[in-house]
Design a binder for these strands. Sequence first.
DNA 1: TACTTTTGGTTAATCGATTAACCAAATATA
DNA 2: TATATTTGGTTAATCGATTAACCAAAAGTA
Lengths: 338, 338
Amino acid sequence: MNKKRTTLKDIASVLSISTAAVSKALNDDMRISVKTRKAVKQVAKELNYQPNHLASALRKGKSNLVGVIVPRTNSSFFSSVVENMEEVLNKAGYNIIITQSNESFEKECKNIDTLLYTQVDGIIASMANETVDLSYYEKIKSNGIPLIMFDRGENDLNVDYVGINDYDSSHMIIEHLVAKGCKRIAHIGGYRRTRIFNNRIRGYIDAIKKYDLPHDDELLIESSLTLEDGRCQMEKLLALKNRPDAVYAASDYAALGALQILNEKGIKVPEEIKLVGFGNEPFTSLVTPSITSVSQHSEQIGRLAAETFLGYVEIDDVDQSLNKIILDSELIIRTSSK
Amino acid sequence: MNKKRTTLKDIASVLSISTAAVSKALNDDMRISVKTRKAVKQVAKELNYQPNHLASALRKGKSNLVGVIVPRTNSSFFSSVVENMEEVLNKAGYNIIITQSNESFEKECKNIDTLLYTQVDGIIASMANETVDLSYYEKIKSNGIPLIMFDRGENDLNVDYVGINDYDSSHMIIEHLVAKGCKRIAHIGGYRRTRIFNNRIRGYIDAIKKYDLPHDDELLIESSLTLEDGRCQMEKLLALKNRPDAVYAASDYAALGALQILNEKGIKVPEEIKLVGFGNEPFTSLVTPSITSVSQHSEQIGRLAAETFLGYVEIDDVDQSLNKIILDSELIIRTSSK
DNA sequence: TACTTTTGGTTAATCGATTAACCAAATATA
DNA sequence: TATATTTGGTTAATCGATTAACCAAAAGTA
């Protein structure tokens, strides 16, 4: 019906005052009398006034929008991170725009363009698996808006970062498996080019050495960590003449793939082979046997990433030093490693 | 470094022409010579010009942004719907803003406000479980922007809708279970106030009648369909003196909860009790035994919802009739009902 | 040659909200 | 009473891109 939206002008003409006065009244400017302010708000409500975000953002040079880039939203980790981010940012008057890269570099670049185009005030991102070249992220910084990365970030890139200590997490896992009596532990890892996976691998190697366990090359695998990958790599591990007695996969999906193969071959978990995943995806507690995994404190990561962003906009300090927040992870022990 | 972004004015002053000419050149206006157009584009590239979306959207009264509201993003169904929507809309020059209601009515209202505030050109939404009062959605329509609902919609609301045939899906499931020899089929359903769940219940009742099966009240349960709910309701069903020999849950999460209880109690699935879920979530194929479920063609739903929206903006026909697109679903038979 | 048309732009208004700069009337102060 | 200050606004410019309206110069036509 009422196709035309109410503008400041409409309110102004009802009350026979200037649009400037209306604008100030709505923003509770002291220079406008309490009586006028009340009247303006009253009329605004009656006319169902809704400010035109485009206009105010254009004028103020600030959109109060924050862009978020995640590899996929259908992961409980990312979904939870985003939820917590949103909570913090909403309270501070910001709204978020979620985009997903689907692990594709090309899509990621497109998303960055979209967000810049939408004039967001900042971007919080986690890199796609595919991404190697980071120059596209530089574009964000050269646009003068803050960029905060989480989980999948990069050392080289000079940005704020929030994530867990992957190196220590590997240690924690190996320690747990050693305590359970494992002597030959394999690692289905991600690609080293991604920092977090590289750190998990480094942690694995150092922990293995620390406990004087065999660190055969055949026990350390790099892969893309999908479920299918987990199946495939597990089969390879089983084909070894000297089988491992434990498998630590750097993702829950890979761990699940491995578990499927073990189940299919009738190999008992945890009796014959113990299994540990990473990420604490909900299904780890749902499958049989349930899978031991590492919780990454998604709530904290989301909250801290959001707060880091707010640090930039609230304190208008150009000279802000970079934040690198590294959280401790938590090992959730389930049947697969008991 | 270069805090100030390049504007049309900058390009104009380099070439000593008017900003109007630059604007037209970039939009390939015929009134600008090919030579000038090339020069403008060249300079634009050199200065790394990126149009200010806010300004053009304000002037054109069109943001080229589409808002999407989903209950949660961390469900493979919604995630896939969104992905396909995005693909179609991107091709048409639109970008999407995803928001999640977390199944909360309050959050849903907030999201609607945010999207309207962001001046989206349309909204594509699936209702939260909690939502009963639909007046808030009316706000969208009274703002004059198209609203398309999918999956969880409402009959009463006079909007376009894309979804599957829930009534027929129930029929399909009962037919399948009857063919497998089941004689006493229970239904863990959702709340009737939500249309899709009501339809599934109606389909269940009619199919049960059609095959002359018992339709005791104790076999039909309404719940919120979470995993916990599934556990709880399954326990109740097992406590009946006349146990069912099959359970049809209106969500995969509830089905999974039911399965957990059955596994824990050592009741064999599918030998003693057959189980069917709904939604074809990935974990249905991952758990043991794998769960029979209904695929909702998320790709098509996403694509069709997007195309329905485009129908509104491309054809500027005020008098467009409402689209109600009902797709057929597909039963994916797995171990739990074999 | 004189007039018309086309080409390739320019000028200025506009979208709606914000804000710097200004000002009249009311009130306070000396 | 005369001047200073406060109160409560108003005016006009601005953000950057778009576009309706306009126009000079070049080219075409009778």
